[in-house]
Design a protein around this nucleic acid. Structure first.
Length: 455
RNA sequence: GACCCGUUCGUCUAUCGGUUAGGACUCCAGGUUUUCAUCCUGGCAAGAAGGGUUCGACUCCCUUACGGGUCGCCA
């Protein structure tokens, strides 16, 4: 039997990292077993079901590179290998109304299917009216589930006060989550349900429904939740909660995927930096932990830096461009050279503008403290001499400029290295930045001399 | 409150009865880089507590504590 997994989010206006990880694990499991990954939108709560809310799900999935084989407008089946080198910035998913309810992956459009299953339960005498609503009569016995992550868990349904019969159809005729969720999983022939641990206690309810319908249940795997750094529950407003915020903050999608995969799952090796393809290769449900994991933004940034180091300079330049433009910095013709000089200095794409501004404008902000420190440095006294020496040079290159530093240092009985710091600060206004040679060649002779003179 | 799941460095984790309890992030120190960063080396830092079982327990069992989840005509 081939594997079929699904991710079934409800539109809430954003894609939560916890949801993203659930989607990722379902996707990885399906891809690993050459199965089918399905996206189903559980939009039965009309109040929250808006176009934007649905779009947030698609955008998040697309950005992460998680394509679905079945679902709203099945996304083009791009291979994971292809994704690795690709800009995955927001491709929007278009919606086409399905011809039949069974073709739809929106619960709001599948009512006739639910009606049919409802009749089955009615015929089996498992439903009774409560006002205008219908309740499902639980079988009063212990229910055992064999969870792929949690192991055997038994919930005793003999105690009616703890497990009251549940409403599956509301007074207004609409169906509740438990019922439609189960029906859809059955209809879509889902083999493995991988979902958050918040659903663990729902599972016996679902097993009861499935049994009453005379069907075979899928296998379940409940994954632990993701918590804030302080251990509290992660909600919408918390930093790092919304997947849509990551691209804005300068994260690479592959880094985010890599990082959330590491939350609650381990490759059982010392390796930590993985592409989507690597993850498919190594993923297994058995390696998922049972304890909730806390979200460490610092490590997430480190993972991002590792991925930035791996991508090509061209792709890095493309990805950084929006951030540079957002700061109203010009994209000059030497942009590729400028960007290459800082590729391995930043952890986030959003750090790029502040890392390169002094190279492309003359009005970049300076770090006053560092400037003061450099001015107090005795070696700053040699800067005017260095400026005049450089001004007299006929050729200009990183090496020639460095040689000039050595010459002036030697003439004054100092070491070249001692001049480097004041020179760096005079040129950049900061203590950290690109290689001095890069700065020299990007700035050119005129600007270098000018900034040395003005210091 | 009841019912479930969980508990190894601050954080993410390895360990499937016998290890000096390993790796990663962070932080600190040294080295490389005539500068910055990268990088390399080293360091700080952990089995919640108490009982069992066992020749031997982080690992199995029980209790307590703590954390999380669930108890809707939300999903």
């Amino acid at each position: 039997m081939s594997v079929r997994t699904r991710f079934a989010p409800s539109p809430t206006g954003y894609l939560h990292v916890g949801g993203a990880r659930t989607a990722l694990f379902n996707w990885l499991f399906a891809r690993k077993h050459k199965g089918t990954f399905i996206l189903r939108v559980e939009d039965t709560d009309a109040a929250r079901n808006t176009e934007e809310a649905r779009q947030a799900i698609f955008d998040g999935m697309s950005w992460l590179g998680l394509d679905w084989d079945e679902g709203p407008e099945s996304s083009v089946n791009r291979s994971a290998a292809e994704m690795d080198g690709q800009d995955t910035s927001h491709s929007s998913v278009k919606l086409h109304p399905p011809s039949k309810p069974s073709d739809s992956y929106y619960q709001s459009q599948r009512k006739p299917i639910y009606d049919a299953y409802f009749e089955k339960l009615l015929a089996a005498d498992r439903l009774y009216k409560d006002g205008d609503a219908y309740r499902f009569r639980f079988d009063r016995k212990p229910i055992t589930m064999n969870d792929l992550v949690c192991g055997e868990v038994i919930i005793d349904y003999r105690d009616e006060s703890n497990t009251p019969d549940m409403v599956i159809r509301r007074s207004d005729g609409s169906y509740v989550f438990h019922f439609v969720n189960v029906v859809d999983d059955l209809e879509m022939k889902i083999t493995h349900v991988i979902r958050g641990e918040d659903h663990l206690m729902n599972t016996p309810k679902h097993l009861q429904l499935i049994e009453a319908l005379g069907a075979q249940p899928p296998q379940y795997a409940h994954i632990p939740l993701i918590l804030n750094a302080d251990g509290s529950k992660m909600s919408k407003r918390d930093a790092g909660a919304a997947v849509g915020d990551y691209p804005k903050q300068g994260f690479l999608s592959e880094a985010v995927v890599n990082f959330i995969a590491l939350l609650g799952w381990s490759s059982k090796s010392d390796d930590e930096i993985f592409t989507l393809t690597d993850l498919i290769d190594r993923f297994s449900l058995e390696a998922i932990n049972r304890a909730p994991a806390r979200f460490d933004l610092e490590k997430c940034k480190w993972v991002n830096q590792q991925h930035i180091a791996k991508i090509s300079t061209e792709r890095f330049a493309d990805l950084a461009k929006p951030f540079v433009q957002a700061e109203n910095l010009p994209i000059t013709e030497n942009y590729p050279t400028v960007i290459a000089a800082v590729k391995e200095k930043v952890r986030l794409l959003s750090e790029v503008p502040a890392a390169i501004d002094f190279l492309i404008t003359d009005t970049a902000a300076q770090d006053d403290e560092t400037v003061a420190k450099a001015k107090g440095n005795p070696n700053s006294a040699f800067l005017p001499a260095l400026a005049e020496h450089m001004a007299a040079l006929t050729d200009w290159s990183a090496d020639i400029a460095k040689e000039a530093i050595a010459t002036i240092a030697q003439a004054n009985g100092a070491k070249p290295g001692q001049l480097m710091f004041p020179v760096r600060v005079a040129l950049s206004g900061r203590a950290h930045g690109p290689d001095l040679g890069d700065i020299f060649s990007i700035l050119g002779k005129e600007k270098t001399v000018e900034r040395l003179r003005c210091f």
